[in-house]
């Protein structure tokens, strides 16, 4: 995988954008995700209502891949049901393992940008960190 496809337009845009960053007032749940190999350390907050994700924001420090992956994920999971979000997480993680159908992958929209990250084993953990954090945060709802 070359640098142009790793640091693609979409990933760079989300890395520099702060539209999903910050705090929420009275979040329903907040979850920390930590990747010791890279030092990525983020905290994602969710507001849940009637089995829906009403809002989400994140804070933290991390590499461009983890920051962009988190921002893209938040865009995707806002205003969908918890079940739908967990399904997307499942598809994302399977996409990385090259175990998702094209039809499934299409549902990931911008997150498709990480499709080939498995060619860079050192960076896989960065891309999957927010999705693991989301699964952890929502597992009891």
């Amino acid at each position: 995988m070359d640098l142009n496809s790793l640091y693609s337009e979409i990933i760079m845009e989300h890395n520099r954008s702060s539209h999903n960053k910050g705090d929420l007032e009275n979040p329903t749940v907040s979850e920390r995700g930590y990747n010791p190999s890279c030092g990525d350390d983020l905290n994602i907050e969710f507001i849940l209502e009637d089995q829906m994700i009403k809002d989400a924001k994140f804070k933290g420090y991390g590499c461009a891949i983890s920051q962009a992956s988190t921002s893209i994920m938040i865009d995707l999971v806002k205003d969908i049901t918890i079940k739908e979000a967990l399904d997307l997480a499942d598809i994302f993680l399977r996409m990385i393992q090259k175990d998702a159908s094209d039809e499934e992958i299409e549902k990931l929209e911008e997150a498709i940008a990480f499709q080939n990250i498995s060619n860079m084993p050192a960076r896989v953990k960065c891309a999957v960190l927010p999705w693991h954090t989301l699964k952890q945060a929502l597992k009891n709802y």
Binding site: D2, Y7, C38, G39, D40, Y61, C126
Partner: peptide
């Protein structure tokens, strides 16, 4: 982030450490 620095340097054939 230092991890991105290491990845970019790797593409130039340069091995450094980040973390």
């Amino acid at each position: 982030h230092p991890h991105d620095t290491a990845t970019i340097l790797d593409s130039y054939g340069i091995a450094i450490r980040s973390g």
